[in-house]
Design a protein around this nucleic acid. Structure first.
Lengths: 346, 346
DNA sequence: GCAACACACGGAAACGTTTCCGACACGTAG
DNA sequence: CTACGTGTCGGAAACGTTTCCGTGTGTTGC
């Protein structure tokens, strides 16, 4: 159907090697011959078949990107960063989203293989030791973003410190009853950020001599709906928290939704702090921990492209900055007791 | 480095054809031989090289997805629908995001080629006639979503009717001065939805004997920031509209942002209607036109997979439903004049 | 005991590239 | 006239699969 390099060679009256040379500038070709080849290429609308190319070169010119939590806005923002770099390169992107544990395992088992991709970018997922052995055995350049492993190049956040800063902000405002909504601490996908942020939360409380009350910590919150549920649980406690810190902006927005449904005044009755600083955090005027998401996508691919070019360089680890952005969902807790505060709006 | 089918054959003491047969179940193999092959495969951790496979089969098992407006939440939602189907198939996804016109052209020129992908899914982009010729010449199964062309299978919306319904809702509430913020009507990417929605807007006005005032129509609005700007322009008119309809929820959220910044009461001073019903529309209590985004992604790939299997079936065209979701950003215009309404909140 | 047949399997050919060895033509120096 | 370099190019080999033709072995029926 489609023209092959042999068709071009025949039409131009040259050998296939010459056609290849012209197309790849891989060796000098007489100007006249070059023109003959180029017109033949144009007439046949010839484009080299990538499968043949890949087989011959042993390179796929494709990068795999593995993304869990694809519902979450922060991941999209990272992906956008990745795409912005890829657009200017000659690499293709293979997208793998992971929604379930079996899927996670299947992807990590089948994707990192020579001949499938040239490099792998993994977001927010810590590979197991078995995964790692496979990655090394197949010798696939791999970069982690928002995750870490000593043997792999990665970009990581200081989640502990960032969470601690966020909770300290609440404590400084006068909050003593602070809830935290997290993902499962033993994240089934093998992410640690939720656990780290929990640790930062605990450290802040400890440093202020506040007790760590287990009922103020809700874990296992995945989507928006879970977020609403956990918020209800927290606010229905006999002695509910006056502030809630969440492990993502998406969840924080769910908290705000519930607060509105309950006619709770934010920040008067309830302060809320998120994490990520997605675009909508600004819309909702959410106080949150900013991480530079788009930028992290860019740095992630660039690190990967580097690793592909220099596979033997020692794995480099870069810390991504974070910053507490104070907007309008945090304030000092009102003096009124909780029963009243449930009614004092509208 | 990695094991090939020859290594497996040698180790198992069989021929390569037998190994291939075992792996693909392509012909009966004696049980004993089969076991020998399988253990050799396991010991060598052999996985067939996709490039070799593709070259031999003439299939890539890859689907290209072309997505413009990747910032917009609705596109992500569609992509999620696509991924949910792909996860259960043995296809890979090649992602192409388009941000600029040259990029759009480059992608549409280089992506639809045999040997690169088996099928192409295009979101919200109308191919030019030249694009179409190329697609047909290379004989690449292609499906459009939120776009249309008689020669290609596609999923389309009745944007005209949906927009008309939205504007009629505003008229019924008593609005007479209704603004519309759209993308460029001559969309540089070749999308028609913006133009169609404008037409629906005009039809609704006409049907109610309302004048179509050019200054109420702002076009060329791409991102959130543009949205804010266009909103300012509309609200700063000597005789500003009392309601604003936008071509996407993302822009509608920008309108809400501006309204809040100006201390305008929504919906008291200003009604707002969006389009898409992204997840955050519910959070913002935005009245909007719902399209079933996730579902449209699912249907899009399924149609494509169908087309790949039956390339000679006539292109089928499916209409996607829409629905007006009335929430809390629309109400009857207040009686007070505009100067007052700018102050009557808080 | 032999023809016919089923079953099982080996390996050459083909897919479309790139690479690289070798060859040819021409000019130049000795 | 010869030897050698230079510029140019052709096409076999290799990349790792799948397919399919052909062959060998054992079984069945007469």
């Amino acid at each position: 159907m489609a023209a092959t390099i042999h068709d071009v060679a025949r039409k131009a009256g040259v050998g296939i090697g010459t056609v290849s040379s012209v197309l790849n500038n891989s060796r000098p070709v007489n100007e006249k011959t070059r023109q003959k080849v180029l017109t033949a290429v144009a007439e046949l609308d010839f484009v080299p078949n990538p499968s043949g190319r890949r087989l011959s070169l042993g390179k796929t010119h494709t990068i795999g990107v593995v993304i869990p939590y694809f519902t979450i806005a922060s991941q999209i923002e990272r992906l956008r960063g990745v795409m912005s770099v890829i657009a200017g390169s000659d690499y293709d992107i293979n997208l793998f989203t992971v929604e379930t544990i079996p899927q996670r395992n299947k992807i990590l088992q089948t994707v990192p293989r020579r001949g499938r991709i040239d490099g792998l970018l993994i977001f927010s997922l810590n590979p197991t030791e078995a995964d790692l052995r496979r990655i090394h055995r197949h010798n696939i350049p791999t970069v982690l973003v928002e995750a870490s492993h000593p043997d792999l190049p990665h970009l990581f956040l200081d989640d502990v410190a960032a969470a601690q800063t966020a909770v300290e902000h609440l404590i400084q405002l006068g909050h003593r009853k602070i809830g935290y909504i997290s993902d499962y601490l033993d994240d089934p996908f093998g992410s640690f950020f939720s656990r780290n942020r929990y640790q930062g939360y605990c450290q802040a409380l400890k440093a202020a001599d506040l007790p760590i009350q287990p009922e103020y910590h809700r874990q296992g919150c995945f989507g928006r709906e879970d977020g609403r549920e956990k918020t209800f649980e927290l606010l229905n406690l006999p002695n509910p928290p006056t502030a809630i810190f969440t492990y993502s902006d998406d969840i924080a927005l769910a908290v705000l939704e519930v607060a509105r449904d309950l006619n709770l005044n934010v920040p008067g009755d309830l302060s809320v702090v998120g994490y990520d600083d997605i675009e909508l955090a600004n819309f909702a005027q959410l106080t949150t921990v900013r991480q530079y998401l788009f930028e992290s996508g860019i740095q992630g691919v660039e690190l990967l492209l580097d690793t592909i070019e220099h596979p033997d360089a020692p794995p480099s680890h870069h810390q991504l900055p974070t910053e507490l952005i104070v907007r309008r969902t945090t304030a000092s807790p009102s003096q009124s007791n909780d029963a009243v505060s449930l009614k004092n709006r509208d």
